[in-house]
Structure formats: C-alpha cells, structure tokens
Design a binder for these strands. Structure first.
Lengths: 333, 333
DNA sequence: GAGTGTTGTGTAAGCGCTTTCAAATTTAAA
DNA sequence: TTTAAATTTGAAAGCGCTTACACAACACTC
C-alpha cells in the first residue's frame, strides 16, 4: 500500500505538497497538482485515514449509538443519519447499547476512543448525570428521543405526552368510552409521558382513568399478547385498546384474533411509532407517527453545522410533533 | 484528555512501561503495574485508539458492508456479526452499499481506508473480478450470500437452488399443480438460482414450466403487488404462488386480499428468507428459512480465527442449508 | 567472584499523515 | 530594471502510541 512518501517521490515534490493537493485547502499550482495527481493514480494511492486522523485530530466520523441494530425503528434511524452524513463526506460508526447501562456506557466510551468528531445517541439506560457530563466534555453530543433538563440544545425529541393524548383522543372521537391501555416500561420517560397523555385525553373527555384498564409491558411484541390476556380478565368490555408502541399493538392483535375478536368491528386498536411493519400488519395499523426519520435527520444536520461548519439546509428544531396515522384498526362505535 | 505521556510521568515510569501494562503482553512487575494502573485511574486515562492503530497497524475493527441499514434481513445480519465480534473485543464498522456498484465500491474503499483488519461483505453490485482482486489484496475478506468461483474459502452462502426447489416442492406436496412464481431480479445470482430450483421441482413432478407463470420482480414489496396483478391476467387459475422473497410475498398477499382471495383457502403463498416480519403477517407466512443468522455468525468466527487467531467454537462451514418453515399460508388442495 | 541466564525497564525510532514557519519563486508595481 | 508583495514550495516538528534493542539488576551456577 503506497504511502504519501512514495507519492511525493514519484511526483518529485515534498510530502507537504502532496498533503496539500489531497486536502485541497492550500494553494498549489496547476502544474504541481497535476504531477501529484498523476503520481497518485499511478501508484493507486489511498490515504491512510488513521494517520490522517491522528495528525489532524479530525476523524470525519460521527458515532451513532442505537439500542439495537435490528428492528424498523432503529433501521430507519440509522439509514437517515447515515444518508445525511455520507452526503457530506462524513462517516458513521454505529454501535448498539442494548438498553443496558453498562453496555451503553461501553459503547459510548468506544466511540470516544475512536475519536469520533461528534456523537449521536439514542441512549436509554445511562443516567442523565452521565449525559450531562458527556456534553460538558469536548465531544459534541446530540441526544435523540430523550429529553434531559439543561440539555435542551442537544436533545431532539418527539412530544410523547401529546402523542399519547392524540392516540386516546382518536379513540374517543370514534365514540369509544372504555379504552384499555398497554403501556411501555414506566421507568422510561417516553413510556410515562405517553401514559400521561392518555390520561389527559380521558380526563378531558370526562372519563375517569381506572388502574385496571392498564397493563405495563416492556415494548416487546409478547407484552402485547400478555397485556391483551390480562386486560380481558381484569377490565372486560373495553372496545378500544391503545398501545404504547406498534410492536405491542401487533402482539395484542394476534392475541385478540386468537380470542375471536374481529378488528376493528369488535375491538379497535391504536399503536404508536408508525414503524415500517405497521403497514404490513393486517388490518393495517392505525397509529401515531413518531418522526424518528425527521429527528435523525435533524440531529445529523445539527452535527454538520456545529462540528463541521456546514450550514444546515433546514432550520434546527428540537421538538417534534406526533400525528395520527389513520389506517384500518380504529373503528367507529 | 490525558495521554500516555502524562500517565508515565504521574506513575514515574517510561512510556514503554505504560504501553506494556495497557497491552498486558510483556512482563511488568507487580509493583510497577500497580503504580501505572493507579496513575491511569487518577487521570481517567483512555488510550487513543487512533494512535494505537497507527503504531500497531491493527485497528481491532472489522468492516461490514450491507445493502441497507434497515430491513429485517440486514438488521439480523448486523446484529449477529456485531454480537460475535464484540464478545471478542473487536468492533464493527458498518456501511451501506445500496446495491449500487459505485456506492458499494466506495463503501469498501472507505472500510479499507479506515484500515479495518478484515471485511465482511454482503456485496451485490460489484463485479466478481473486483471481489477476487480484493481477496488477493492484503485485507482478509468474507463474502456473505454470494458465491464467487475460486473464492470458495471466503464465501458463506445458502443453497438458493435447493431453497427454490423446497418452496415449490412444498406447494406440489400440498397438491398444487398450477403454481405461479414471482422471481427476484434475474441478474442476481441468488434470484436465478432460486428460479432454477423452482423449475427443477416442477420438472421432477412432471409439470412443465410455462413462461407466463412467472413474473420478474425486484425483491421489493411493490413488485409482489404488480406481480400478482400481472399473473392474474396472464396465468389465471393458479392455486399457489411462490415468491422469491418475503417482501414480495407480503405485497402479493395484499394484492390478493384486495382482489378478494382468501389465503390460503383460495390461494396459497410461499415466501423465501423467513425474515422477521413474516411472523407479523396475517396469515403467518409459510416460507423458506434463509439462515442469514448462521451465515453472519460463521463469517464472524471465520474472521476471528483467520485474522485474530481466536479459535472458532464451531467448525467453519461455507454452505448452508435452507429449510421449509411451515406456517399458515400454504393450504392443501 | 567471574560468568551466564533471567527479568524488568528505558531509549529512541518509527507508523503516515498535517501544519507551521521560513525560504524560494513568481508576479505586479514603480 | 529594481523592489515589494503575493504565491508556491519544502523542512521539520509533531499527533499518541508500539516495539525493537539495549541496558540494569538480580539470581544462579561452577
């Protein structure tokens, strides 16, 4: 593998000059530039990114932490972020934290040790304290889908409370009065926010919230099935079920079907996230759009602007608005 | 950010000694080791991976090329590879090639410029020639889901011909005689192999293959819908439809439902890949398992063994066997 | 006590680049 | 022409680490 030294020799110029034509930042005469480029082509020269990074203290790579590498939600996020950054010549190093404090911590430390120029984090398990510390350190950090007090400028979040409100309101508007709810794990901020929204919508409609109408799941599909079974037993007669994410909605649909319910004739279901596969479900799931795509894009632009001085083509915003996606699982009563 | 120099000073030893305790390879006395470790802890020292890589010519990272960052198929692949490698202290740098020759090429060059110790490629668009060249270069390469002649040792593939055979055979065994087929893009080896298998199964059952019974799609969901429409027009009366992947099967199911068919009572459908969402489909899709998980795992172990001299816990194999996954979309005639 | 191994540590030369500074060259102005 | 200013180039000092190599220090043998 050719080095810059061999190029400089072949071109009959100094290292510095070769470096200059590579980076295109300083002035080099047309004639020398040509000589160098020819030499590069001749040798099939490919700069060593590692050495460049060490010397320039710039890696041109940004670290991305997601919870899992599979699943539509994160697939969407990764795709978006990579697209925006790659278009601007930056590269993404992706790691998974698996919603585990230790593993998230390690993943972030790994990204830092690779000297990423910036981090985009979908961190669920590490503490607010740790995130604050991170932001105070030298690496710029964007946080996705998590609101941390005092870190407003770094956070990109959807209004989960409003989303929960919209989901339940949609059911109420369709005439439902007995609305069950399958929540996400309440230690997660997004789950508790969504639940708050649900309660607000009920209250606004003059319906009192009953503890038995709710089941706390873990966001996985199986929790949807368990929840459905649990609710049938402890809160029978509900005509609509709001789920805190699409995975659980899918599980609930399966369980409902097995129990003989027609959807939406006998039971309405509303999900949350508008994950890709919610279109594949049958009937197609009515859900709340979680603008994960928009958030990822925004975080990427924020990084480009703050770290690389590349102006964002869209104004930077931090709060995103959820919307109802009307499909086929919510029926009128 | 503390450097090795500051650690050495704080510990009262030389750079070399600090380096030795970091790498744990050379002998260091207990006393000095303790001193150095204390100094590291005190300073919150974190080695600079970039500098380490440059000096040691080892990055401890392996590059992974996938076609897309979203979708179950690649999600599964990324997760598996990352898991195996991370467990062994290696890191993964993921890039997407988008099934485009230029972009795949660039992605691979990027991984090489990051000096990955090895590459694991799901490359669909670059030429065999290029891959051969790559294998001949200094970076070890594992190729997933693509068989390249002369590169048997580097390839990890499923027997697509056999898979196609099994899918159609399953339909035949269920009593079907008029079997339509929605193929993948035939310039792709896997697509043409699957089709060959389909034809072999027909032939073996004494059914003659008719050109009109087949539609060539592009592996996307929409092609399933188009294909269904096309086949209804040009090859009516088919009672079973075999699709070259699950995405297209899903599209075909939607189209079939819209056309009023009951599945599987009036129309049987068989997919291919056994992608995660095939479980979410309703009815649950009968399909062929593509052991992408096993292949990714194997490729990762191969890398560990060949590049890092870490013995693989399972024997290295290169050819994987597809299997029928019986679920609910194939009915008996 | 001289010779021979061990073991632990330090010195210094890189790894392949970037970047400052100064020198050399060209261009423009007088 | 001569001189100053602007432009182009090269020399060399790092970036933070690894790793030969050399050298002490110590424990053995005979």
């Amino acid at each position: 593998m050719a080095t810059i030294y061999q190029v400089s020799e072949a071109a009959g110029v100094s290292l510095a000059t070769v470096s200059r034509v590579m980076n295109g930042n300083a002035r080099v005469s047309e004639r020398t530039r040509k000589k160098v480029e020819d030499a590069m082509a001749l040798l099939g020269y490919q700069p060593n990114a590692i050495a460049q990074s060490l010397a320039s203290n710039r890696t041109n790579s940004v670290g991305l932490l997601v919870s899992e590498l599979h699943g539509s939600y994160f697939g969407d996020l990764m795709s978006t972020v990579e697209n925006v950054l790659k278009q601007n010549g930056k590269h993404v190093i992706i790691t998974a934290g698996h919603v585990d404090e230790k593993r998230e911590h390690e993943a972030i430390e790994f990204l830092k040790s690779r000297r990423c120029d910036a981090l985009i984090l979908h961190a669920e398990a590490v503490s607010d304290e740790y995130l604050k510390q991170l932001v105070d350190s030298s690496t710029p950090v964007a946080v996705i889908n998590r609101k941390v007090d005092e870190l407003n400028d770094n956070c990109f979040v959807v209004d989960n409370e409003q989303g929960g409100y919209l989901a339940t309101q949609a059911a109420i508007n369709a005439g439902h009065k007995h609305i069950a709810y399958i929540s996400g794990p309440l230690f997660k901020k997004d789950a508790s926010d969504r639940l708050s929204g649900h309660k607000r919508a009920l209250e606004e409609a003059g319906i009192t919230f009953e503890e038995t109408s709710m089941f706390e799941g873990d966001y996985h599909e199986s929790a949807g099935q368990e929840g459905m079974l649990h609710l049938q037993k402890h809160y029978p007669n509900f005509t609509a079920l709001v789920c805190a994410n699409d995975e659980m909605a899918s599980g609930a649909m399966t369980a409902a079907r097995e129990a003989g319910f027609d959807i939406p004739e006998q039971l309405s279901i509303v999900g949350f996230d508008n994950v890709l596969f919610s279109r594949y479900l049958y009937p197609k799931l009515t859900t709340i759009n979680n603008p994960i795509h928009a958030m990822g894009e925004m975080a990427a632009y924020w990084v480009l602007q703050h770290v690389y001085n590349i102006k964002s083509p869209i104004p930077i915003e931090h709060l995103f608005v959820p919307e109802v996606v009307n499909r086929d699982t919510l029926g009128n009563l």
